[in-house]
Nucleic acid binder design. Structure first.
Lengths: 344, 344
DNA sequence: GTCCTCGCATGGATCGATTCATTCGACGCT
DNA sequence: AGCGTCGAATGAATCGATCCATGCGAGGAC
């Protein structure tokens, strides 16, 4: 009663079956032109018959290189990141490379796990949205010959190529918009300051406030959400309303999912009336921002384009080649959550 | 002017550096207990110093097995699938396995590409949402010793384990609900009948109609959308309105993204008034269904649970072991898009 | 007829890990 | 002193591909 474990056919099985040498089979696979047509046919028939699939492990071990790229994103459920992933995939497909996707959930341990997995797998390179400001582990990996491109991280990091959006400008756009509506106090539901984007968006907010001749310390209230998704925004807004008895008049959320949570909390606490009494600005302009009960004003980032460029940098970049930083500009998209609402 | 390609340290480099044999280094890595503490320390120091990362390719080649599982989903941008992916990941993490994600976009060629990539990479198994009803290629892969579990495919397929939701019941729930509101004609924006889910949901719709004593041929109009996302729904609804001059009174959409597109089209064509004049039911109950301008009635599927179970089947399943089919039941979630709307 | 060239096929060396039979040395026991 | 035991380290064989120097036979030039 042996368990019948099917053994994969190897290249030498194929060679034997076709009556040729292993080297010839390898040539059929990799340089068909140098093999005589008759032989080639015979080998291909044998491959077919044994349903032979070459071992990627063996190929990689000997030949060194493969055509896989890894990407580690913060949250696979956030449309912002899946849009970027799509851009990456589109660019890779053009060079017949393939993408392995993973989600770190902003957990450095998970990030490390996947970095290691990808490196052991021998990927050509990785695209990473880092979970920590300390990038020394990524530089290490790069030194070992793996190409690394940072995603969504400002260009202040000198040694590794990156693609990002100007978060300072994004924060500025949002705050300037809210101020222009007449608000004199802003509440910023931000992520932790260990995340660079959050720091930069805050700096942008402050810059806009100062440009309006006001003092950020008096105008801006920053609240740190517990998670960068709808639940985080929901909880934060409930806490705010719980403290003050009423919600802040103007809220800027560090991403659209948080804004979604804020809207949900407001609706649950006081219905549409309460919801429409608050000006809300989100960030990322995900697909559904326009379809919400109260369509969301948001800061749009060129996600697909970012993915394209990032993959492009990675594919074209030599190891140890020139470091390049691409910075895209964000854009304000005004919708009902800050204007044109009934009663405002 | 040679390009300085950093060469990865190998296990024999480590051995030399630590003054031990390669076998000893391997033991430190895999069975630390059998190595004397002093030696172990020395080896670990050498590993650290050379920043040695073992080659997954070599390990896999010799040892045969690794701890990676592949998943091929239809559309990485559809929250339904990313929720499932999250469930998969959670279950895999418990066994220290990791997930490689890919998106086939319902394109058989892309599916084939990733199937091959995963197989060459020597994954333990794969979780696949198949793009075609013909599953012979998957059975082939299975025969070669790779575990395969189907996702979101009904249990009618005998040879491969699967996890799915009862789509017939889902279609029935949706149609029965619309009929109970008094509608006598239903428009079903469905996907192509090459997709099993679409066929089943249609069958469910027909069953509900018949159960109400009506004739499906007279009651149900089926329209095939060009793509299973918001754009597909948008285009289909515009076409319908273009033909008849007004939208159908009751619409059932094969997924929530399509329903989203329908809502968008209606709003653009006739504002909130037109939108609220149509009863709309979606499918999947994605996060944002509740947050839309007109919160969407939908059929909920236990996505996370599906991912968990699928991964569980894969990890526990022996090659050639028992085939198991898990079928979950869907659930109707009623929201404003079919009830409680002002003026209805 | 001899010598070259050229196209095609060959088979051994190699990549970097794991595995296991073997060796080595220290120690305890009689 | 001799023997057996046992823990620890060794190093060669192995996995399945690629790469490359080599072999070989046919055909052309002189």
């Amino acid at each position: 009663m042996t368990i019948q474990r099917p053994k994969r056919a190897s290249i030498s099985d194929v060679a034997r079956h076709a009556g040729v040498a292993v080297g010839t089979v390898s040539n059929v696979l990799n340089r068909p032109a140098v093999v005589a047509p008759a032989t080639r046919e015979r080998v291909l028939a044998a491959i077919e018959e044994l349903s032979f699939v070459p071992s990627g492990a063996a190929r990689q071990l000997r030949a060194g290189t493969i055509t896989t790229v890894g990407a580690i994103l913060l949250d696979i459920r956030n449309p912002f990141f899946t849009d970027v992933a799509r851009g990456i995939e589109d660019r890779l497909a053009r060079d017949d490379h393939t993408l392995m996707l993973a989600s770190s959930d902003d957990d450095p341990a998970r990030e490390a796990k996947y970095l290691r997995l990808f490196e052991e797998h021998g990927v050509v390179g990785m695209l990473v949205v880092p979970t920590t400001p300390d990038l020394s582990h990524l530089r290490q990996i790069q030194r070992r010959g793996v190409r690394v491109v940072l995603l969504d991280v400002p260009s202040s990091v000198a040694e590794i190529s990156s693609v990002s959006v100007n978060d300072l400008a994004g924060g500025e756009l949002a705050a300037r918009h809210l101020l222009s509506l007449g608000h004199t106090r802003l509440t910023f539901l931000n992520g932790p300051h260990t995340i660079r984007q959050c720091v930069d968006r805050r700096a942008g907010v402050d810059a806009a406030v100062r440009a309006a001749g006001l003092d950020p310390h008096e105008v801006v209230t920053e609240v740190t959400v517990t998670s960068l998704d709808a639940n985080g925004g929901d909880a934060a807004m409930r806490a705010l309303v719980g403290e003050a008895g009423r919600p802040p008049a103007a809220v800027f959320c560090v991403n659209d999912l948080v804004a979604l949570g804020v809207q949900r909390a407001l609706r649950h606490l006081g219905g549409t009336e309460l919801l429409t009494s608050v000006s809300i600005v989100g960030y990322d302009d995900i697909d559904i921002a326009a379809e919400l009960a109260v369509p969301l004003t948001s800061i749009r980032q060129p996600t697909h384009e970012m993915g394209l460029r990032a993959a492009d940098l990675l594919l074209r970049g030599e190891v140890g080649g020139a470091v390049e930083h691409v910075v895209f500009q964000p854009e304000l998209v005004v919708r009902a959550s800050t204007s044109g609402r009934p009663g405002v």
